[in-house]
């Protein structure tokens, strides 16, 4: 019966941490149903979710993450352009010294591409069929990890 206590623990963590997540659609692709479902699920789990709408550039996503000081970035891409777009995004995060923010990616990602995405620093790739509970659980864990990073803590602990 570990399931119930798992969920209770998750709920307590979310409540105590006030987790802030950026959900973004990257590139020229208007299919936002998936991103909206994830944004809503994270909100209903008790997180503060910034949704930026469709057709965002990597520059816009990174700037938004900085101004909103988010814990986790979730990106949705269904256009097939995930490799160049994510490469750009991950490089920008490094350039702006915010690569301590974990990034997860969801969408129609071919399995052979997953390794390349991990190599460029994408923390997690969610494929079609992923349960919302899985996404919520991962987001909490990623937020905890981010708040443990030294570079981030040096920017003013509280």
């Amino acid at each position: 019966m570990g399931g119930t206590s798992d969920i209770l623990e998750l709920a307590r963590d979310i409540r105590n941490m006030r987790i802030k997540v950026l959900v973004a659609k990257l590139g020229l692709d208007g299919h936002d149903r998936g991103a909206k479902v994830v944004a809503r699920a994270l909100k209903d789990a008790g997180m503060e979710v910034i949704y930026t709408g469709i057709r965002q550039t990597p520059e816009q996503v990174v700037e938004t993450a900085i101004q909103e000081d988010v814990d986790v970035i979730g990106v949705s891409i269904l256009s097939g352009a995930h490799i160049p777009l994510m490469k750009r995004l991950m490089n920008l995060l490094k350039e702006k010294r915010v690569d301590y923010i974990p990034v997860f990616l969801g969408g129609s990602i071919p399995i052979p591409d997953i390794e390349a995405l991990h190599k460029m620093g994408v923390d997690k790739v969610f494929l079609p069929g992923t349960s919302l509970k899985e996404v919520i659980k991962y987001t909490v864990e990623a937020a905890k990890r981010k708040r443990g990073y030294r570079e981030w803590r040096d920017l003013g602990n509280y």
Binding site: R15, A39, R40, L42, K43, D44, A45, G46, M47, E48, V49, I50, Y51, T52, G53, Q56, T57, E59, Q60, E63, T64, Q67, E68
Partner: peptide
């Protein structure tokens, strides 16, 4: 749920990368 969906930015994202603009939800 104590969660929030912050969507005001959607209409202002064209200014997201402007050095003279800062938007906070």
């Amino acid at each position: 749920s104590r969660g929030a969906l912050l969507g005001d930015r959607i209409r202002m994202q064209e200014h997201a990368t402007d050095p003279s603009v800062f938007i906070r939800s």
